[in-house]
């Protein structure tokens, strides 16, 4: 594998550090000193659930969909079977959601998701 020069690596490390910090700190520094208009507040209030919806959908479905497309599928039914019923992510995510719903514990939900995911993966393969 091609080794990258040490100077370039240091440049990358400090460049990333500065820009990532700027992205996260500047909006806080400015917006915590200003009154935020209500329409903007409403818009922002939907942001967390929208981010989670996008992340869960992509993390659970895209690996399975990629796998399903990778296998030669002439019938759409095969695609659905592979991406939905044979997708350990679906069972893992549902277990995490139910566990959180009943226990209100993030760590419980996370562990339940991981365990169920691993078990289903084991059963399917």
């Amino acid at each position: 594998m091609e080794l990258t020069s040490s100077a370039a690596i240091w440049g990358l490390i400090f460049g990333m550090c500065l820009l990532n910090f700027g992205l996260r700190f500047l909006p806080l520094a400015v917006l915590t000193r200003l009154a935020i208009p209500r329409p903007l507040m409403r818009w922002l209030s939907y942001m967390p659930i929208a981010v989670m919806g996008a992340l869960v959908a992509t993390e659970v479905m895209i690996p399975a969909l990629n796998a399903a497309f990778a296998v030669e599928t002439s019938e759409t039914q095969n695609l659905a079977t592979t991406a939905l019923y044979l997708n350990p992510g679906i069972y893992g995510a549902l277990s995490a959601m139910l566990t959180y719903y009943f226990t209100k514990s993030f760590i419980g939900g996370t562990l339940a998701g991981v365990v169920v995911f691993a078990l289903v993966q084991l059963l399917i393969t």
Binding site: L55, A93, F106, G109, T110, G113, L122
Partner: peptide
Amino acid sequence: SAFGIYFAMPAMYAALFVALA
């Protein structure tokens, strides 16, 4: 990967989805 450890983040997102709903 056999231990499902890479699913820790998606599982957490799923739990968080319920918390935010």
